[in-house]
Design a binder for these strands. Structure first.
Lengths: 199, 199
DNA sequence: GCATCTAATGAACGCGCGTTCAATTCAAGC
DNA sequence: GCTTGAATTGAACGCGCGTTCATTAGATGC
């Protein structure tokens, strides 16, 4: 049976399939793909290692599926960005990016860290999706630059800088900590806004 | 013999010791600590796996030494920051950070990615060193805030944002590419400068 | 040129890896 | 209650892992 395939009847696959993905996501994020064994994932799910191969062809496919689905979801969310001025759209991106990252920490972390563990073909696919995200951010900067509301010497560099800055939030933000998510979003947006605008 | 210990005579250790570190640094950066075997490192150096244990007590110590020495060097460089206004010091940090990162890509990468592969005691040490770096950056922001030249709602968040943004340069910068290092430093400094100053 | 001593070898240890597969379990459909 | 077929088991495969250690090689100091 193919992974993720749903059946009409109440089979084990309906329950175990997602469980495998969830366990792999959590363990890969915590210990790293290379350091996690199929037996560890199986133990987490509550089955023997062999049973995992009902839901994935191999360990590499498990990683790739998690990364691809993550990027697809990220891009899907990005595509519903409301119309508006470049400034409004950039603010939306800042808040969307932070919100998504904080609510999908494991997925974000894996997509960050495990690129190098993808086989060449898979690596190309994920890099391509990531590139599309970067392009979407840059498109807003380019628009703002052309309309004269942003002053950016290099839109590509600025896109990468903004994305890197926003990704950083996952390294230090703790829920229930000193700063609420709303406040974090507001502060980051202020920094980004000033960084792309002329003084 | 202890690793890194120098001898008066021209022993093999003088040559092989650093070679082991260099090979480990390169391989850990490229494939990740967990994915690299002691035999791989040995092959790179041109010895048998057993010989590595003349220079390191075990694989974990090899990683830890690389990470600790990296952070020590980073902090050492930071400590020679010239006096000056908060703005001047922040600019110096931006340029130092970018320059160091681009000339020590492997070390930076490992310190970024391999924290989770450190045993608890080692993890504490490296986290502590990293924390000192973050504190040094924040100290400049605090100074500028107190002097009224920066407008920063939260100096801790701003420190992390700046560091994350600067770290990002390693993910896309390629020597001989579209932008020179000097130009990259200037653009980043402009973005940071505007991000911390009032509009 | 012999004694000393360290670097390096290479075999060995037990272990866990990813993956396969025949056998078994077990719910569903009739 | 029997048949069907998918889900799961559990043993097995060959392999490479980190590390140890008796042994050898080879330069150093006298």
């Amino acid at each position: 049976m193919l992974p993720g395939m749903a059946r009409k009847t109440g089979s084990h696959a309906e329950i175990t399939g997602p469980k495998v993905r969830e366990a792999a996501l959590r363990l890969f994020a915590q210990y790293g793909y290379a350091a996690v064994s199929m037996r560890q994932i199986a133990r987490e799910v509550g089955v023997q290692a062999g049973a995992l191969y009902t839901y994935t062809t191999d360990k590499q496919a498990l990683l790739f599926d998690l990364m691809r689905d993550h990027m697809t979801e990220v891009l899907g969310g990005m595509s519903v960005m409301p119309e508006g001025s470049p400034g409004e759209r950039l603010e939306w991106i800042v808040r969307y990016h932070i919100g998504y990252n904080l609510s999908h920490k494991d997925g974000v972390f894996i997509n960050y860290m495990e690129l190098r563990n993808l086989e060449p073909e898979n690596h190309k696919v994920i890099s391509g999706l990531r590139r599309r995200y970067e392009d979407a951010v840059e498109a807003v900067l380019v628009d703002g630059q052309e309309k004269g509301v942003f002053q950016i010497p290099d839109t590509r560099l600025a896109s990468m800088a903004v994305i890197a800055m926003l990704n950083g939030v996952n390294t230090w933000y703790r829920e229930g900590g000193r700063l609420s998510q709303e406040r974090v979003e507001r502060i980051y947006w202020n920094m980004v806004r000033r960084a792309v605008k002329g003084a």
